[in-house]
């Protein structure tokens, strides 16, 4: 029961604090690619892999007061900050979750910018393509982001490190 909710709470417990919905979406997607068993289904949206299921599940966790969501007005958009609550920790303690250790990966991912994670997640989404085709796809689908060759090279390195 509510195992997928518990897995997310575990993530927030490990991450302590996550800033930005886009960042959260991309971190969970990348962790999935690292075989951490999050089950939220992802689709490619305009800005990369996105899970409606994850959005709704996080909303449920907030409504249940297992997560604190702080909305910050950034002028032309809102930014959201997430943190586990004591009720969330209590809930987690009642669960016997069998999750692999993800502390190191979460810390590494949480330390990156959402722009970079968007690039990494997009590259992973096309992982079955040739390397050059992946890069072409990034430029084709994200022309406005104007990712540089250095960023893409760094993303390849990051993928090697994290996956």
């Amino acid at each position: 029961m509510l195992t997928n909710h518990a897995k997310l709470i575990k993530f927030f417990h490990v991450a302590t604090k996550v800033t930005g919905r886009k960042k959260l979406q991309k971190i969970i997607y990348i962790l999935q690619q690292c075989n951490i068993p999050f089950e939220e289904k992802y689709r490619f949206h305009i800005y990369g892999p996105y899970s409606e299921e994850l959005t709704l599940r996080v909303e449920e966790l907030c409504n249940l007061h297992f997560l604190d969501e702080i909305k910050e007005d950034k002028g032309h958009y809102y930014q959201y900050h997430y943190q586990i609550t004591s009720a969330g920790n209590d809930f987690l303690n009642q669960f016997s979750l069998d999750m692999p250790d993800m502390e190191e990966k979460v810390s590494l991912l949480n330390g990156q910018s959402s722009r970079f994670l968007e690039l990494v997640a997009t590259m992973l989404y096309f992982a079955d393509l040739e390397k050059s085709d992946v890069e072409a796809k990034v430029h084709e689908l994200k022309p406005k982001q104007k990712y540089s060759a250095e960023e893409i090279a760094r993303a390849w390195g990051f993928i090697d490190e994290v996956i």
Binding site: K22, Q25, Y47, T55, L56
Partner: peptide, 12 residues
């Protein structure tokens, strides 16, 4: 899903 307004450009 519901209609959700733009959230950090996550969805158009």
């Amino acid at each position: 899903d519901f209609y959700r307004p733009g959230e950090e450009e996550e969805r158009l």
